[in-house]
Structure formats: C-alpha cells, structure tokens
Simulated assay, not measured.
Amino acid sequence: MKLDYMQCWNGAMALLAAHKEAVIAIAGVFLFLPTLLFAQYVAPPILTGEEDSNALIAIYMAYFNDNALAILASNLVMSFGALAIYFALVPSRSHTVADNLTAALKFLLIYLLANLLSGLIILPGLMLFILPGLYLAAAWC
C-alpha cells in the first residue's frame, strides 16, 4: 500500500473542518491566551547589540532565572492545550470539549515524560554529530 499525501491532507482538512469550533476554542484559551499574557507581563531582555558572548549569556541567565515560573507555567498550559487539540482531532472520537480536556489532563504527565525522554535521547545525538560537524565546518573555512 502506497502512502498518498493528498489523501492524508484531505483527511486532515476534513477532521479540522469537522471539529473547528472545538479546536478554535481550545487554541484560543490554551495556546494564544498564555502567549498574549506572557508577552504582556514578561518583558524581554534589553539588548543594545554591542554585547559580547559573556554579556549575552549573563543577560539571558538573569532573564530565565527571573521568569522561570512564568515560562514554565505558560509552557505547561500550552502543552495541555496542544494535547487537548490532539484528542479533539482523533478520528474515532466525537466527544465534547470537556471530554477532550479531561482526556488531555489524564495523559498530561505521560505526554510531558515522553517529551522529556525524547529530548534526552536527542541531546547525545546533537552533541556527538551536529556540534562536531559545525566545528569541522568552521575549521575547514
């Protein structure tokens, strides 16, 4: 059986059209609102463009230390919203938004652990292949 990308696209668009009200509601509350609130209440670091690498590291370390709770909270809410949208778009489910949010809440911890483990698996590959490749490319030029 050959994979037909057009059929996949049409299926995805049909699912989105069938559940667009739920997806818009969930995305508005759990994806766009946290981003808007974060942008409104957390000021970005102020850079002049003349900082060296040590100054940039110090500025961003202070920024992340001062705003760690806001960054963590907004990312958790957005992860929950993305998971709820995934549940809303499952073809075999036709539940309410409340059912999708409940299912997302039940799987949130597993979802976060899977993301953490995949990041831990990707990190050695980054360190072993990408960074030496960048070093070799820079040393070659």
Rank of each mutant, 00 (worst) to 15 (best):
I122N: 14
I57Q: 15
C8H: 14
W9M: 13
A62P: 10
Q40D: 03
M127Y: 14
F64W: 13
T35M: 14
D99W: 02
P45L: 01
A114T: 10
A27M: 08
K106V: 11
A39F: 09
Y86R: 07
L47H: 05
S92C: 11
A43E: 11
P34R: 01
P34E: 02
G81E: 02
S53K: 10
V97W: 07
I110R: 12
V42Q: 00
V42I: 14
G119A: 08
F32A: 13
I26Q: 04
H95W: 10
A103T: 07
Y63K: 08
D52P: 03
L128W: 14
G81P: 00
P34Y: 05
I46A: 05
S74G: 06
M61W: 14
S79W: 06
H19E: 05
A22D: 04
C8L: 15
K2Q: 15
K2Y: 12
E51G: 09
I24R: 09
A62C: 08
A137Q: 11
I85Q: 04
H19I: 03
L128Q: 15
V97R: 01
V90I: 09
T35K: 14
V23Q: 04
T35V: 02
C141F: 10
Y111V: 03
L36A: 13
S92M: 00
L16E: 04
S79L: 08
N67E: 03
W140E: 10
I71V: 05
E51T: 11
A27F: 07
L101T: 02
T48W: 07
P44V: 11
K106G: 05
N75G: 06
M1Q: 12
G125E: 11
Y135G: 10
G125Y: 15
V42G: 05
H19K: 03
A68D: 04
S79A: 03
M127V: 13
L131Q: 13
I57Y: 10
A22Y: 01
A18L: 03
L37Q: 08
L89H: 00
F64L: 12
P124S: 11
A68L: 14
L123D: 13
A14F: 04
K106S: 07
P44R: 08
Y63I: 02
I122S: 14
T96H: 04
L109W: 08
N54Q: 08
L76N: 08
L47T: 01
F38E: 05
Y41A: 03
I71Q: 02
L112P: 02
G28H: 01
L134W: 12
G81T: 06
P44N: 09
M13H: 01
A14K: 00
A58C: 14
W9E: 15
S53Q: 08
A73Y: 01
E50C: 07
Y41G: 08
M61T: 15
L33P: 02
L15M: 02
A27R: 03
C8T: 11
S79G: 03
T48N: 00
I122K: 15
L16R: 00
L37N: 06
P124V: 01
L69Q: 10
I130H: 12
F38M: 08
G125N: 09
A103M: 12
N115T: 01
S94T: 05
R93Y: 10
A82D: 02
L47R: 03
I85H: 01
V90Y: 01
N10V: 06
L36E: 07
G11L: 02
E21D: 12
D52N: 14
A39I: 07
H19Q: 03
L128K: 12
I122M: 14
L108A: 05
K20Y: 06
I110V: 11
M1K: 09
